[in-house]
Simulated scan of single mutants.
Amino acid sequence: MASSRSPVCYADAARWYCLIFLVLLVVLGSFTDENSLIKKMNPTAGQACDEIYVVGEGETLHTISDKCGDAFIVEENPHIHDPDDVFPGLVIKITPSRNSRS
């Protein structure tokens, strides 16, 4: 004997289940620690660096700032006259902020 439900009813039910599933994913995703997500995407982000840092190939002050947690590299290194003129081998002083140490 054939079922009395039409395929449209099954499609509506499936649509509702998908909607509920997506809402649950969004709600559960909002409980994820943002810092752990950033560390998963970039494991070196916010790591404490040595006080003396040697710029590597392809690095910029922005990438070093993100990596070492020092937002004031230019202010703390008076020998850097042009922030765009950073080259491999340049020695800079790093002073991480208190937030990145913890």
Rank of each mutant, 00 (worst) to 15 (best):
M1W: 08
M1G: 14
A2Y: 08
S3C: 07
S3F: 08
S3N: 11
S4M: 12
R5C: 05
R5I: 06
R5V: 07
S6T: 11
P7F: 01
V8K: 15
V8T: 12
C9P: 03
Y10Q: 07
A11C: 10
D12H: 12
D12S: 13
D12V: 11
A13I: 10
A13E: 14
A14N: 13
A14S: 13
Y17R: 14
C18A: 15
C18R: 15
C18Y: 14
C18S: 15
C18K: 15
F21T: 10
L22P: 02
L22T: 12
V23W: 10
L24F: 13
V26F: 10
V27Q: 10
V27H: 08
L28R: 08
G29S: 13
G29I: 05
F31M: 07
T32E: 14
D33C: 07
E34H: 06
N35V: 04
N35S: 08
S36R: 12
K39P: 01
M41S: 10
M41Q: 10
N42W: 04
A45C: 00
A45N: 03
G46A: 01
A48F: 02
A48Y: 02
C49L: 00
D50V: 00
E51P: 02
I52T: 10
I52H: 04
Y53L: 01
Y53V: 03
Y53R: 00
Y53K: 00
G56Y: 00
E57N: 04
T60N: 00
I64P: 06
I64C: 03
I64Y: 03
I64N: 01
S65G: 05
G69F: 05
D70H: 01
F72E: 11
F72I: 06
I73V: 09
V74P: 02
E76L: 13
N77V: 06
N77H: 08
P78A: 00
P78Y: 01
H79T: 12
D82Y: 02
D82Q: 08
P83C: 07
D84C: 06
F87M: 12
F87P: 11
F87C: 12
F87D: 13
P88L: 10
G89F: 04
G89T: 10
L90V: 04
V91A: 04
K93Q: 13
I94V: 13
I94G: 02
I94S: 04
T95E: 07
N99T: 13
S100Q: 11
S100Y: 08
S100K: 07
R101S: 11
R101T: 09
R101V: 08
R101G: 09
R101Y: 04
R101D: 09
R101M: 12
R101P: 03
S102N: 14
S102A: 14
S102M: 14
